[in-house]
């Protein structure tokens, strides 16, 4: 099981989301790099379907403290930079993905990053749970289906983790761990053990 930290926020017209997780690369760092590159290419197609504009979507793979690969796309080709591939395959690699996209909903970008994490995890024989910190409302919010809350600082009180919620920041975003299937009505990838 992989725990994926997801953060999402708005910055003027930019939709900003990031995901970070650790995993054991089942077939090595080179294969992991290729899996991430494929997900970036899929993200370009996704943005085209959304009629959105990619500012950039970047990812890194890090092993140890000094070695890292970076992959990025601005809506066309995927570029790769960074360290040479390891001579000894690491037990654990850290993966981070960040996307800044214009012309789509923040939740859609968040879903895309979840999908990327799920696909990468699946290709390495693992599945994900998600921990979110976000600045958007959820469709099953207690404000109801008619909620048209468009406030960028909108926060949600209904969360099933209310008792554990330690909302203390001025922008009132909640940090929570949950099985993402429980209370989001947007499409998620099914996980297999």
């Amino acid at each position: 099981m992989i725990k994926v930290e997801i953060n999402a926020r708005l910055h003027e017209e930019a939709r900003v989301a990031s995901a970070k997780f650790e995993l054991k690369p089942a077939a090595g760092v080179a294969a992991l790099r290729d899996q991430i590159a494929e997900q970036l290419r899929i993200s370009v197609l996704w943005a085209d379907e959304q009629e959105a504009m990619i500012g950039h979507i970047k990812a890194y793979v890090q092993w140890g403290t000094e070695a890292a690969l970076m992959l990025s796309t601005t809506g066309s080709a995927v570029e790769v930079k960074g360290s040479d591939l390891p001579s000894d395959e690491p037990e654990i690699a850290e993966v981070g993905i960040t996307g800044i996209v214009f012309g789509t909903e923040l939740e859609a970008l968040e879903d895309r990053l979840e999908g990327m994490a799920a696909a990468i995890a699946g290709q390495n024989g693992q599945w994900c749970v998600y921990a979110h910190e976000c600045e958007h409302h959820h469709h099953d919010h207690e404000h109801g289906e008619d909620c048209t809350c468009g406030d960028h600082d909108h926060h949600h009180h209904h969360h099933e983790h209310d008792e554990a919620c330690s909302c203390h920041e001025q922008e009132h975003h909640h940090e929570h761990e949950h099985d993402h299937h429980d209370h989001h009505d947007h499409d998620h990838h099914d996980h297999e053990d």
Binding site: K58, Y60, M70, K81
Partner: peptide, 27 residues
Amino acid sequence: NEIGEVGVDDKVLKAQGLAVRELFAGC
């Protein structure tokens, strides 16, 4: 400076031996 929570470029810069201080999660 990265507007998101996750930095990517800092990893590459550090891998090149540069001294980097991260300023994330805000512009």
